[in-house]
Simulated scan of single mutants.
Amino acid sequence: MNPKPRLTLAAACLTALALPPTAAASSTQVFIDNGELNYVGSLTADANQRAFALFSQAQPRPAILSIRSKGGVTGAGIELGRWVHAQGLTVKVMEYCFSSCANYVFPAAPRKVVSNFAVVGYHGGLSSMSFQLDREQEAMLKTLPAGQREALRAKLEQAVREAAAPQAAEEALYFALIGVQQRITTLGQSPAHAQAETEQSVGWTYSIADFAKLGVRDIRVVNPPWKPAFVNSDKTVITIGVD
């Protein structure tokens, strides 16, 4: 599992890590099919606006947002989640909804539908207490003497936390609006769950009962039981408990 969000210093407030490993995301597809609004790809402000326009023009308007996303820009995730919540849409996940998609879009819906292998995966949020640096920053640190390396790492991580603080406050207000506990995005980073990590795990998820403890209710599984698994990938998510 990747227990820390990997945020660049410049974009700490804006971007959540997409499911690793990933290539550059292709353009997000937004379309209506079989009466459902489909959102396939990274969460972006542009894709959101296209989705909103399609919805407003459709007759009748879709009742379901079917989404497949590895995540994307934090602000876009919150924007889409607010809209889903306001419209009262059902969110349907047949393959995966990861990172910002899981943080903000999935829990915003009053009703959710998932396939029996769908992955709704988490690996951190804006209220996380620690962050990984990006590859460029790590490469730069490796060029420094050991004595300077950790001091600069600590300064960079502190700068990321300070940069993220304003949106962390916005995130808290968002979760209060949708009635979900903000810790849904950070519980898997607890040391208590570290022993469950493996080289193949990239995040965590919850059982239906534990989702409900966090405020995420009314999840219907198509052909239960629900056993999250990525298709054509050896990556996994661990299922953690909620006290």
Rank of each mutant, 00 (worst) to 15 (best):
Val113Ala: 03
Arg153Tyr: 13
Ile238Cys: 06
Gln29His: 07
Ser56Ala: 14
Ala212Ser: 08
Phe211His: 11
Ala76Lys: 00
Ile219Met: 07
Ala58His: 02
Val93Thr: 04
Ala58Asn: 02
Ala16Val: 07
Leu173Lys: 11
Leu17Glu: 01
Glu150Arg: 15
Asn103Glu: 09
Thr44Ala: 02
Pro5Met: 09
Ala12Met: 04
Pro145Thr: 04
Gln59Phe: 13
Gln189Phe: 05
Thr8Pro: 02
Pro5Ala: 06
Ile238Pro: 01
Val30Ile: 09
Val242Trp: 13
Gln87Lys: 13
Ala11Asp: 12
Pro20His: 05
Gln148Thr: 14
Val222His: 02
Val30Asp: 02
Arg82Glu: 06
Ala45Pro: 01
Phe117Cys: 10
Ala108Trp: 04
Ala25Asn: 02
Phe230Trp: 13
Ala102Trp: 00
Val93Phe: 02
Asp234Leu: 15
Gln195Pro: 05
Ala47Phe: 00
Leu43Trp: 03
Arg217Tyr: 11
Ala146Tyr: 07
Asn232Ser: 15
Ala109Cys: 05
Ala12Lys: 00
Gly124Ile: 07
Ala45Leu: 05
His193Asp: 07
Leu89Cys: 08
Val84Trp: 00
Pro5Trp: 04
Pro3Lys: 05
Arg50Leu: 07
Ala86Val: 08
Glu197Phe: 10
Ser26Val: 12
Gln181Tyr: 07
Tyr104Gly: 01
Ala146Val: 12
Pro166Glu: 03
Thr74Ile: 12
Val30Cys: 06
Ala164Ser: 12
Ala53Ser: 13
Val73Tyr: 03
Asn48Cys: 08
Pro228His: 03
Leu65Arg: 00
Asp134Phe: 10
Gly72Pro: 01
Ala165Cys: 10
Pro191Lys: 04
Phe230Lys: 11
Ala10His: 15
Thr15Asn: 10
Asp218Val: 11
Phe98Ala: 11
Val93Lys: 01
Leu89Val: 10
Ala63Pro: 04
Val237Gly: 03
Asn116Lys: 14
Asn103Gly: 08
Leu152Gln: 03
Phe117Ala: 11
Phe52Met: 12
Leu187Pro: 11
Ser207Tyr: 01
Glu136Tyr: 09
Tyr122Trp: 11
Val221Trp: 01
Ala23Val: 02
Arg161Gln: 08
Thr198Pro: 09
